[in-house]
């Protein structure tokens, strides 16, 4: 009994000491290892991006544990780091999150996080079978205008996520009755693309680098990318704006964030470290090699960015009729 209470006392005093040290903590950061939660499985694009970033961040003097918690589409990982102490030693990946609350899965809002910096944006793209009837984004829009349910469109992963939200947003701008669109979830972009090649689908939405192999085999083609300008690595793919005239962009993005309530001085210090890591040539080259985009936004810019993300997601999901009744 006495042993137990002494452990408790020790824990309590550690917590109190931690609270007292909060002020000068910003200057000392980092003085012990940092946990960085990645809300995706090891080996994927997110894991790659954050391991690359962590390798550069470690030069600040402390090891970084990259911890993959992909369960529940990332809900488990977001829960882990948003409920951690806002001391700068538990950070996490922040990627599209607004759909969780709208679907009634979890309660994350902008207020759940302390955004630190955005490091990557990958635009969504529209892919069709090489031998199919659809040859361009114009064909797809025309077919959907005629009958919104006529095409089988794969979300390239779960629906109401990075790839289909911007696409539906574009179709909304075109005046199509999006609630009737036949959106089909896939267990991943690879599965969706293979099914596209097998003739089981008409359109797949996902990022461009994922389609390289099947494109080389002459099985599929990319008809449009939802970004402001054409991508450096894929100069032949037109943007959605060039084809339709509607300026709709979107896709997935990855940034560093912490739990809500972090000290602004600490945020500034961490942001400085992230920016330095982002600027290194090894991070830039590593991202370019895998075909991942690099875009930087500081803490203020990233906060505005995720607010816009929340608004776009809500608008699209309400139009789709998938939002949970409040």
């Amino acid at each position: 009994m006495s042993k137990k209470s002494s452990i408790l006392a020790g824990l309590l005093s550690a917590t109190v000491a931690g609270a007292l040290l909060a002020g000068p903590a910003a200057a000392a950061w980092p003085d012990h290892p940092i946990n960085l939660i990645v809300v995706a499985g090891a080996g994927g694009g997110s894991d790659f991006t954050f391991r690359l970033l962590a390798r550069e961040l470690e030069k600040a003097g402390q090891p970084i544990n990259v911890i993959n918690q992909a369960q529940g589409g990332g809900i488990v990982g977001y829960t882990t780091y948003t409920s951690a102490k806002p001391d700068g030693y538990t950070l996490g990946q922040l990627s599209p999150f607004a759909q969780f609350k709208i679907l009634g899965q979890a309660n994350f809002t902008t207020a759940s996080f302390t955004p630190i910096a955005l490091v990557n944006v990958d635009p969504a793209a529209v892919h069709v079978a090489a031998k199919g009837k659809l040859k361009s984004l114009g064909d797809i829009v025309a077919a959907l205008k005629k009958d919104p349910a006529s095409l089988r469109i794969s979300c390239g992963g779960t629906c109401s996520a990075s790839w289909d939200i911007p696409f539906v947003s574009l179709m909304l701008a075109e005046g199509i009755d999006v609630a009737k669109i036949n959106l089909i979830p896939a267990s991943g972009s690879a599965a969706g693309l293979q099914e596209l090649a097998a003739g089981g689908l008409d359109v797949v939405l996902c990022s461009i680098p994922e389609t390289d192999a099947l494109k080389d085999a002459g099985l599929i083609e990319t008809v449009a990318v939802l970004s402001a300008t054409r991508l450096e690595k894929y100069p032949k793919v037109p943007t959605a704006k060039e084809v339709t005239g509607k300026d709709v962009t979107g896709g997935t993005w990855r940034g560093v964030a912490g739990p809500a309530g972090m000290d602004p001085a600490l945020v500034a210090r961490i942001e400085g470290a992230v920016h330095k890591a982002y600027e290194t040539s090894s991070f830039q080259a590593g991202m370019k090699e895998r075909g991942f985009g690099t875009t930087y936004l500081d803490a203020a810019g990233f906060t505005a960015f995720i607010k816009a993300h929340e608004a776009q997601t809500r608008q699209v999901m309400e139009a789709l009729g998938v939002a949970k009744a409040p």
């Binding site: 003085d31 012990h32 946990n35 090891p63 544990n65």
Partner: peptide
């Protein structure tokens, strides 16, 4: 690099990884 808890060793764990 399995993120096992260091508990009381946390402040020194930088040297132990």
């Amino acid at each position: 690099h399995v993120p096992l808890s260091w508990g009381v060793l946390e402040p020194f764990s930088g040297w132990l990884i």
